[in-house]
């Protein structure tokens, strides 16, 4: 049962592939952004699970505890989450503009309009 200790990576891979599938297979632009969010969250879970230490505690100093999980990935992900939401907002703003120009947020309809011009 040696391989069972790797289950956290498999959860990450499954979530990542779900997000990836949405991004490449769905035509709706808002849904693509949701897919990117899922992908992103899977990366967050990957980093945080790397930081976890058996028998460790949350990285806030308490008298008498010597084992903590690694604070560095926590910092990286903390900033990544906020950057992620800023970029999500940027993407959504572009979607709003696309809807104003084309009247649609479906990828294939936009391609059709581009082709007919």
């Amino acid at each position: 049962m040696d391989w069972l200790g790797l289950y956290n990576y498999w959860v990450v891979v499954i979530l990542m592939m779900a997000g990836f599938y949405i991004v490449i297979a769905q035509g709706n632009l808002v849904k693509k952004i949701v897919g990117l969010n899922i992908f992103q969250t899977s990366v967050f879970i990957f980093f945080i699970s790397l930081a976890k230490l058996d028998g460790g505690s949350a990285p806030v100093y308490v008298e008498g505890i010597t084992e903590y999980s690694n604070p560095l990935p926590h910092v990286l992900i903390l900033t990544a989450i906020v950057v992620g939401v800023a970029l999500t907002a940027m993407g959504l703003a572009l979607v709003v503009r696309v809807h104003e120009l084309y009247g649609s947020i479906e990828e294939d309809e936009i391609h059709e309009q581009d082709g007919s011009d």
């Binding site: 949350a58 806030v60 999980s69 926590h74």
Partner: peptide
């Protein structure tokens, strides 16, 4: 994230 000992990240 709370279960994985990352309360700061969970809060965010």
């Amino acid at each position: 994230f709370v279960l994985l000992d990352a309360p700061d990240v969970a809060l965010t």
